[in-house]
Design a protein around this nucleic acid. Sequence first.
DNA 1: AAAGGACCCAACCGCGTGACA
DNA 2: GTGTCACGCGGTTGGGTCCTT
Length: 307
Amino acid sequence: MGRTPCCDKKGLKKGPWTPEEDEILISYIKKNGHGSWRSLPKLAGLLRCGKSCRLRWTNYLRPDIKRGPFTLEEEKLVIQLHGILGNRWAAIASQLPGRTDNEIKNLWNTHLKKRLLCMGLDPQTHEPFTSCGPAIKAPASPATRHMAQWESARLEAEARLSRESSLFNPPTPGKSDNDYFLRIWNSEVGDSFRKFNQADKTTRKSPASASQASSSTKCGSVSAVTADISPNLAGCSTTARNQNEDTECKSCKSYAEDLNAGSDSSSSLELEDSSDSTLQLLLDFPINNDMSFLEENMDGYATYSAM
DNA sequence: AAAGGACCCAACCGCGTGACA
DNA sequence: GTGTCACGCGGTTGGGTCCTT
């Protein structure tokens, strides 16, 4: 099937949007909704293609867009979700109210990726590098794979739920999309995951299963990543083992500063050795204080848990 | 102060996919 | 079943800004 052009390129404007164009687009959408993006520019009187209008609206003009720098909590969440979902920016964005996929993608490419590299972690797999590149991954245990799949599917569903509900329920102050995460987490679905999780923990106590567990998955290592970043950052320049050494790790430095300034060191977990601990951290992820970054949103949670 | 490099981010491009005729 | 349309997504780029030398 041939690819259809998104629009007739002739006579259409490209490049940065002017304030006038923004104004036209905003007032049109406020009045009529976006309807069909393809026909919108014509109807609104804009010399842009529909795709460009959609992008401008979703990434910049939407009223619920949250501007400004990412908070430490948001960054942690992005890292954690990236470990689970990979480069699925839209799914990640759905967990960060007011943030767009584009913004998160940029954050990842400009800051977080480097930060992981600084820490000697492969940004794609979130695995610690070995002396000869990223750690070789043995196949994860079926239980781990199952959990990763479950988690991924859950987040996808969550993303959809967030999207759909935001269509009908404009965000209200103090009630973030993370509440949906919490609502699902506290539903039967989350319950069964926790039970499964608990059952699996007991089965992994044997040395054999422990060695299997040492083949940490993306999900496992991401918890290790976020569990305690600050101790590694202190020696960032020396821990930047497998990366371009001229990376100055500025983002790491500022992150370390943020951590020192803004968070109690007791809130971070000790980074254990990366063998069994990574899986362990995954398994502990939602139950223990890895979810502490969501605690701020807990106020609204009681409402949902009663639902 | 100026030049060059690094960083940042808005915008574009092209692919995948669901809906529909 | 097939082709087309429309949209959403992820990857990439271009240009403005900031920083370093």
